[in-house]
Amino acid sequence: MPAQRLWLLWRVGVFLAALTPLLVWGWQVAVNAAGPEPGRYLLLNIGIGALWMLLLTLSLTPLTKLTRWKGFALIRRQLGLWTLAYATLHMASYALFILGLDWSLLASELVKRPYIIVGTLALIGLAVLGATSNRWAMRRLGKRWKPLHRLSYPILGLVLLHFFWVVRADLSEWVMYAVLAALIMATRLPPVARSLPRLRYRFSRT
């Protein structure tokens, strides 16, 4: 099979893998296996899913540096857009299933609750990145594209803050994600970033 075809297969495979959790959760709701509050079940699972997508997206650059495998770079835009899709569905679940599409309540909650404000800011940030992820926008933005897309770093911070404010009694799960996020961000510190290719060199020789 020509290489082009293989890369296409890889990208389609990633697409299906990213879609699978949504199908599984949807199926659970459809067969009444999601508990007495299926809306909240979707809200929480999709929210955690969005965080996973963001962490995966942000680990692609360090992984590329570490392995030089082209495949990681090929799915970066796709996973970024999946992050936006999950975050949008998370917000939609809140509006639909928790607030019952009460627009006036939504409007007042959006300005009253700090954790919702922070989550909404993160979603707006993701939407900006999504809208400027196409080739046309990349060409138009030129050198400014990269600094703009570094917005994903503060967005990760906002998402963790949003999550932190929701936690009530036990921080274990949050701490796990915060540590993961810290590790991924640490690979961007200049000294660490410089040493990643060297690490790869050492691995390839042994």
Binding site: P36, P38, G39, F97, Y115
Partner: peptide, 21 residues
Amino acid sequence: HPRWSQATERRLPNSLFRPNT
């Protein structure tokens, strides 16, 4: 509650498009 309104409640079990508010 500082993080949500207490004016209404969701009576469980509910379903996706019938939040039973």
